[in-house]
């Protein structure tokens, strides 16, 4: 399967109005995060105490915070932290979940039971609790957040991959491969995992939205990226003290989190629909 075919549903998802708006916002945030050093003349950690608490104006479009740092600049750099930490964590989680789920679902038996028990155990706790335990073990900071989010969503992807693999394992083409002499590794990597990928990637997309909230929550508690590195959660946390004096400090990062999560969900829905149409065309 070539790249163009893989990306086709991602483009199809942009055709609906909701998909287009959501995709547009995500693109804007991602570009802003990547291009932050070139988009803004200010540094995210340059303090200017006399210029603190400015309302939005021509120099500072969204105003400044309690240390006089440009809010827009911090939002753009914050997007870097929030997006990259969430995406990398989910990436780790998906990869590990896919391998665990595939092995458990394909080989079954004692291994499957062991994986299922562990996964169900983490599944039965709220994600935030799992994440807090992980941060307590690893320690606060970017590494801790990555580990916390990665493990918090591991159960979800393992379960999904395992169920998919078990369904596809019964397909005749798998039996056909075996009748030709295919090894377990060949069947797993050539047939089972590629056919599991689309639903798992959609789930990963949607989970990234949740992960952004989780990352912001950990940041809000001061357990995420450590100052002066900005993250949306940490910005909101520092904004609570200035809620009435400068509501922008908490409002703008909050809006960013909300808009990004909603956009990811809307785009994910559009993606599901695009993939669904394709799979229906296939079975007919």
């Amino acid at each position: 399967m070539n790249m163009a075919a893989a990306l086709a549903p991602a483009a199809t998802a942009l055709r609906s109005p909701k998909g287009a708006i959501a995709g547009g916002w995500l693109l804007l945030v991602i570009l802003g995060a990547i291009l932050a050093p070139w988009l803004t003349p200010y540094g995210y950690d340059v303090q200017n105490l006399p210029g603190a608490f400015q309302p939005p104006n021509a120099q500072h479009w969204l105003g400044t915070d309690e240390f006089g740092r440009d809010l827009l600049t911090r939002l753009l750099y914050g997007a870097r932290t929030s997006l990259s930490v969430s995406a990398v964590a989910i990436g780790i989680s998906v990869t590990a979940g896919l391998i665990l789920g595939a092995v458990a679902g394909y080989f079954g038996g004692r291994l499957d039971r062991a994986v299922t028990v562990v996964v169900d155990l983490t599944w039965s706790f709220p994600e935030i609790l799992v994440a807090l335990i992980l941060v307590a073990i690893v320690g606060p900071g970017v590494t801790g957040t990555l580990a916390a989010i990665g493990v918090a969503y591991l159960a979800q992807f393992t379960r999904l991959a395992r169920a998919q693999i078990m369904a596809i394992r019964a397909e005749t083409y798998v039996e056909a491969a075996r009748s030709l002499g295919a090894s377990d590794a060949f069947i797993l990597f050539r047939h089972l995992i590629p056919n599991t990928l689309s639903p798992v990637l959609v789930a990963a997309m949607l989970a990234t939205g949740d992960a952004i909230i989780l990352e912001a929550t950990l940041g809000f508690f001061g357990l995420g990226a450590q100052p002066p590195i900005p993250s949306w959660g940490a910005m909101m946390s520092s904004g609570t003290a200035q809620l009435f004096r400068a509501p922008g400090i908490i409002l703008f990062p909050g809006l960013c989190v909300a808009a990004t999560v909603v956009a990811i969900n809307l785009y994910g829905d559009a993606l599901v629909r695009a993939l669904d149409i394709r799979s229906r065309a296939r079975t007919h």
Binding site: E171, T172, Y173, E175, A176, S179, L180, G181, H191, N195, S279, R282, T283
Partner: peptide, 17 residues
Amino acid sequence: RQRMAMVFQDPYSSLDP
């Protein structure tokens, strides 16, 4: 297995989409 092979009933599920 090079010397033996099987043809399956369901021509839909016997091919990886």
